[in-house]
Nucleic acid binder design. Structure first.
Lengths: 185, 185
DNA sequence: GCCCGCACTGACCGAACGGTCAGGCAGACT
DNA sequence: AGTCTGCCTGACCGTTCGGTCAGTGCGGGC
């Protein structure tokens, strides 16, 4: 039996409940009951409900930010493969956090605090296309980004099983799309 | 000035608010204020809040069901193109409804009423892969299905502009994937 | 023994939620 | 004139929400 702090236990339970029932669909009371403490204890460790959310997604957000910064240092011709593999590895490592982020996007995307996130996704999208100027390639990249992030959410297959399939479908759709443009209908 | 019934106005406002702030993030009061009627009027026209939701997504659900039934009549070799084009046209026609459905999936997917939906998506997924038995093809199809549905949500580009790009990325990723299997790494 | 800080709690708060209900009101029919 | 029906409403209900607060128990340093 490992010794776990109440704070860590709150985060563990909250992550699970938020992913299962959504952020708004999970009350502090729900979390407190499963943790085995009072609701006031949650608000002793975290100032607000939103603080729990921020704490949960912070590591994933940091790693995503690091990935994007690293991709920015690469040249146009060599950026796609690291982008695809880096992103796939990221969402597979943070499955629950990805589900959580996708859940709260509708209610936070219009807030001013969400503003600096948009250029981040644009840079990631650009890395996926190999910085192509073709808007059709941008659409393809957005589809792949969203599709990959969406798949890992409620998928119970092992990461090692899905990883190669995800990378392959992204390579097919993106690398082919940005290298040969002669098959337009 | 066209004459619109209160009921239709409720549906119009609810669709917009649900898509913008989410189902749980939109109260009956919010809708009533924007419609210009009382909250009780909403509950006169619709028995519950959930009835509004069901009414909104019913046409999209019916068309999706029809599409899947039509795809079931096609052979394995000829099903992919109609599946891709049919699905893209569907989500482009029902952008707001798609956003709404994706928003409420986390809170309704565990309910028994959601049970008959799962085989539907499996059949659509199978049509996307050309009924391939390879699990990697299934993953590719799920990525594309989710990615395409996710893209149209908060995309303000005209349907005619995105449609060819969506179809092309899906064809690249899926048709190539299921016809030549000799590039595994 | 005393005190202090940390972890924690029960009781409580105002606000907002979905939903109920008795009744008002305008127009059509008898 | 009377009545019936469909549309609509204000007032209200119980519940649940996130959050506050005074206070309790306790382990460790002095």
């Amino acid at each position: 039996m490992v010794r776990v702090s109440t704070r860590d236990e709150i985060l563990r339970v909250a992550a699970e409940r938020f992913a299962r029932s959504g952020y708004k669909g999970t009350s502090l009371q729900d979390i407190a009951v499963e943790v085995g403490c009072s609701k006031a204890t949650l608000l002793y460790h975290f100032a607000h409900k939103e603080s729990i959310l921020q704490t949960l997604i912070a590591p994933a957000a940091r790693d995503l930010s690091d990935l994007i910064a690293r991709l920015d240092t690469l040249g146009d011709a060599e950026v796609q493969t690291p982008a695809i593999e880096g992103f796939v590895d990221l969402v597979l490592r943070y499955r629950r956090e990805v589900a959580l982020i996708q859940d709260v996007i509708p209610q936070f995307q219009h807030e001013p605090a969400f503003e600096p996130v948009r250029p981040l996704t644009a840079r990631l999208c650009a890395a996926f296309t190999g910085r192509s100027a073709d808007p059709a390639h941008d659409i393809a990249a957005e589809v792949l980004l969203g599709g990959i992030a969406g798949l890992v959410i409620d998928d119970d297959r092992a990461a090692a099983d899905v990883r190669p399939a995800l990378i392959r479908v992204a390579r097919r759709a993106l690398i082919a799309a940005s290298h040969d443009d002669d098959d337009k209908d």
